[in-house]
């Protein structure tokens, strides 16, 4: 379980999170929706310690303890742009965690696991020796997904998993995420503003607006919530309580 309790974060004069409170139950897939610049990515990065909140607490079940390496080993993350290491071939990107640190394994074994994970996300073994720059956007997302699940994490974060993909490839990635999260029994947190993704991936949905969680509930209740902010967002209306810059 991950719990945000009254989390605040500002960048200079810009207040991004203004008391975000949210609970992500263990083993569930929570999708956080909200407009661009509302702090969705900041919230994810606060959990991982990439950004330090100004106030409030974030608790991850099992705690961080003193061993940050072991704490981070419980997470996998798919970055918006893939964030693959250009200087390493695909298999070394996927097996990065298995080639160094506490989870280090022999190179042959690490490569075999990487190839298996690539197969799981629909990529052939011959992709393993290519470099990220040689791959299409969709293939890079798949490699990023393979890297995120390579060390069988308990918690997986997906940052805008379908951004920049064509609708068919977006659908494929959504299905993959849903399948992988279910079969691994992992807790997942996804941030997106793609409503197709939301319906495909989510068990629960939370809407972040103005730095606070405006609405949260099961995905099935999203269309009948009666929340004007959520209604405006999911139907993509220009008119409503959320001010649209024209």
């Amino acid at each position: 379980m991950i719990r945000f309790d009254d989390v605040h974060k500002s960048f200079g004069p810009k207040k991004v999170l203004r008391g975000m409170t949210l609970e992500v139950p263990k083993g569930e897939s929570m999708v956080i929706i909200g407009g661009s610049g509302t702090g969705k990515s900041v919230a994810l990065k606060c959990v991982l310690g990439l950004i330090r909140p100004d106030s409030g607490t974030i608790t991850v079940e099992g705690g961080e303890g003193r061993d940050r390496d072991a704490f981070l080993a419980r997470f996998g993350m798919l970055f918006q742009g893939g964030a693959l290491f250009d200087s390493l071939p695909v298999w070394q990107n996927v097996a990065f965690r298995l080639l160094r640190g506490s989870l280090k394994r022999p190179r042959d074994e690490a490569k075999a696991i990487a190839v298996e994970k690539l197969r799981r996300v629909g990529l052939k073994p011959d992709v393993a020796d290519l470099f990220p720059a040689e791959l299409s956007g969709g293939m890079q997302k798949r490699v990023g997904l393979a890297r995120a699940i390579c060390a069988d994490p308990e918690i997986i974060f997906f940052d805008e998993p379908t951004t920049g993909l064509d609708p068919i490839m977006a659908g494929v990635i959504n299905e993959l995420i849903r399948e992988i999260v279910t079969e691994m029994g992992a807790t997942a947190m996804t941030i997106t503003h793609d409503m197709t993704s939301v319906r495909a991936i989510a068990d629960r949905v939370a809407m972040l607006h103005d730095g606070v969680i405006q609405w949260t509930g099961p995905v099935g209740q999203m269309d009948t919530s009666g929340d004007p902010y959520l209604d405006q967002f999911i139907h993509g209306r220009a008119e409503g309580p959320i001010e649209a810059v024209r």
């Binding site: 390496d69 981070l72 996998g76 993350m77 742009g81 290491f85 990065f96 965690r97 506490s102 890297r147």
Partner: peptide, 20 residues
């Protein structure tokens, strides 16, 4: 140039999430 590019493409953040 290499490290700055890694930073703007979130590769540095990725390193941290990979316990490095």
């Amino acid at each position: 140039a290499e490290i700055a590019t890694m930073k703007v493409t979130e590769q540095i953040d990725a390193l941290v999430t990979l316990s490095t």
